[in-house]
Design a protein around this nucleic acid. Structure first.
Lengths: 347, 347
DNA sequence: GCATCTATTGGGAACGTTACCGGAAGTCTC
DNA sequence: GAGACTTCCGGTAACGTTCCCAATAGATGC
């Protein structure tokens, strides 16, 4: 095998000094065209490839960026990762990807790993509001997700929850639904409060007393949504039940619970999700949901990071609009003819 | 902010030389316990953190590993990534993740990036059989997936397609199905041939003429499976149709096509998938499928890489067994009573 | 023709770490 | 009590790159 050729080998082969070789290879203007050509040829001839470790060590630019998300296995975060990956790749850098599993300790470990790898910057969805950790992080970073509000100085990207909730509630009202029951995430998560607050605000705008809303807690998993819906169903006296879930996975779990209870969606129960995961299109009925622009979130977070590092002016916090995807999990309660309803339930 | 403390700062603070400080911090036995303690205290006091770039440069061990998969957004590959991530993390290293989009050029670019980042090793699902690229790769690597057979010298992990197909065909036969129609991937992909070959082998074992099998090509996407099923449906004269799809996404697309055609799964059409993506559990009916051990694939590929690097003996190619997941997309054709069949279709 | 300027190049030093070598004590052996 | 051996430590040289400074040669200005 032999060792990898270094710039010194290239220089020797081209008959110049290593300084000149370095200049030629880094497109410096201070080098004669003929020389540059000679060096380039020598580089490809020897199979030379820049050692990024050495570059990073000398110049401080490692070409490495970090991404810390809860779970790469979660389709939403996978999309975010892909968006970040694309932008980082366009800038000739590489992305270190970590999954924190919503665990403080793991998050801290990953941040440390990022620091030790001397990443130029990081994109993080913070597990929670441990502002201290980030105050001392020592690496430029941009935040993603709803828990980022605690950091006014750092660029952060999130989806516009208020707009999203408005979208959902407007749609519900338009289809004749009353105030929906809510299946939320665990109390420990900031996103929960944010979502709930938005729902309350929009309820008040519509003269609905927020106290009326039934609330069940899930844990953002399929199983959690399933259990929450079972509780909701057990409590329900009769009539149509409308449920707004804080994420799609729980909505899908809820849908299963409905079927298991011998009820039918959307005939007996209407379900509105939130996230826009692909799996929502595969369920039956298809899940009506509010889609967060996941990939764009990742792209923008990465772009914001590059802007921040380059010293370009920042927007601070950015909220990206969400989009309603109508599939089949929401009944149209405006039509009161029993015949139509029965027909809708069967098809 | 000031600059990051170096080991020299630590040494100065502890009143020792940097060699001693380095030894103390790297758990070398050649250092007095009292001294080690002193150095450790100085390290935490100054907030010292090893510079992995410098370590990598000097020792050749960058603490970086690479993963090149088709698409992190694909749930199967996300699981693989997670498995690799876990093992790499356990070894105190970090993982660079790239998506190749099944594109030769992108793959080559990523491999180059990996080399320049001086990763200690890489896990790759090769886009195709471009053996040359890997011959010159110059970095230890392990292969993952079915196209890895061309590299007898490198460790590679795949799922046991033959066993998986046997599992599927046995299950089909046990439930009274005749030879299934096949929805395969594109001809350009090696996995297609591998899958088809296994099906043929098992058909011959069962005295079924492989020429009898209907075959449709998809492209491993939801839409592709949808279109393929439409073609199948259009050709079908009558009776129960059984379809074995080469992956779950196509199976899910096929399921939609069935519904759109006014047919019902599993009453009129039985669908067997392959992959075991979570979305298969959310469809209705749930997708009966053969689950590849995706996360374990990632773990084993990473482990094989570490073993390879450490010079531990290798198994060469490893095939991991798959598992049948029974959900509801397969009719039981043994029961000929019309009443029962109708009942199954309705529930 | 001499000073000045420009274009191009070479020669170090530095980045932060680890590997290697040699030295200074202390301990042991007989 | 002298040599050998062990334990611990400091000094220095790398690793491969970029950055800075000086040097050379030719061109230009007067």
């Amino acid at each position: 095998m032999g060792r990898r050729p270094t710039i010194i080998d290239v220089a020797r082969l081209a008959g110049v000094s290593k300084s000149t070789a370095a200049r030629a290879l880094s497109d410096s203007p201070d080098v004669n065209d003929a020389t540059r050509d000679k060096v380039r040829k020598a580089a490809v001839a020897s199979g030379y490839e820049r050692n990024h470790l050495a570059v990073g060590m000398r110049s401080g630019r490692s070409g490495l960026f970090g991404l810390v998300i809860p779970d790469i296995t979660n389709p939403f975060w996978a999309e975010v990762a892909r968006g970040a990956q694309d932008i980082v790749g366009e800038n000739d850098a590489s992305l270190l990807v970590f999954s924190s599993d919503w665990d403080h300790e793991r998050e801290a470990t990953h941040l440390r790993a990022l620091r030790q790898a001397r990443v130029e910057g990081a994109i993080v969805n913070p597990v929670s509001d441990n502002a201290e950790d980030f105050g001392r992080f020592g690496v430029p970073f941009s935040l993603i997700g709803s828990s980022a509000e605690r950091f006014p100085d750092t660029p952060s990207i999130g989806s516009d929850i208020r707009q999203a909730v408005r979208l959902g509630l407007d749609h519900l009202v338009a289809r004749g639904h009353a105030a929906p029951a809510l299946i939320l995430g665990p109390k420990s998560r900031l996103a929960r409060a944010r979502f709930l607050r938005s729902v309350h605000e929009h309820c008040i705008e519509r003269d609905i007393d927020p106290a009326v809303l039934q609330v069940e807690d899930g844990d953002y998993t399929f199983e959690g949504g399933h259990a929450a819906m079972q509780r909701l169903l057990a409590r329900q006296s009769g009539g149509h039940l409308t449920v707004f879930c804080a994420n799609d996975l729980m909505a899908l779990g809820a849908m299963l619970a409905v079927r298991e209870a011998g009820r039918e969606c959307p005939r007996d129960v209407s379900i509105l999700g939130f996230d826009g995961v692909p799996a929502g299109a595969f369920s039956w009925p298809g899940l009506t949901t509010i889609e967060k622009p996941a990939r764009e979130l990742g792209r923008r977070a990465a772009q914001a990071l590059f802007d921040e590092i380059a010293g370009r002016p920042q927007d601070g916090r950015t909220y990206l609009p969400c989009r309603l995807i109508e599939r089949g999990s929401l009944a149209d309660l405006r039509v009161q003819t029993p015949l139509r309803v029965a027909g809708a339930g069967r098809s």
